[in-house]
Design a protein around this nucleic acid. Structure first.
Length: 111
DNA sequence: AACTTGACGGTCA
DNA sequence: ATGACCGCCAAGT
């Protein structure tokens, strides 16, 4: 059986190291034509259905903006999670986005 | 079955 | 640099 799109997303997101972040688009690109960036967001949304602990807070949009903060319950939960991992956040944006950026297309060896 | 929505991203004015 | 548009594709209504 083929792995579902959401599960592939969960897999990639789970591989994001502590204190690092990536973007929806990068994940979508890593998965090829199996989905668009929007699909990644959708998959993460269904990840809360998954019992496993998915570090979804490490996924932001391409501008380093915390567009999905709304889905973490609290208004500032996502930002606090990221800050606790050493990232600099201001006004819902990751300041050191480029430095802490983690690209699955580069870091993961496609096994 | 048709229309709208969305945790996005690239292009163009 | 900012804002509008379009493409992406599954889910919900």
């Amino acid at each position: 059986m083929e792995i579902g799109f959401f599960q592939q997303v969960h897999n990639v997101v789970s591989n994001i190291p502590y204190g690092r972040i990536t973007s929806y688009g990068s994940i979508a690109q890593y998965l090829g034509s199996k989905g668009s960036a929007r699909m990644v967001g959708w998959a993460l949304n269904s990840s809360k259905n998954n019992t496993k602990n998915i570090p979804a807070h490490r996924v932001v949009n391409r501008n380093g903006l915390l567009t999905g903060k709304q889905h973490f319950g609290g208004a500032n939960t996502m930002a606090e999670l990221l800050q606790s991992e050493g990232l600099k956040i201001k006004d819902n944006k990751i300041l050191d986005f480029k430095e802490k950026y983690w690209d699955p297309n580069v870091e993961i060896d496609r096994n």
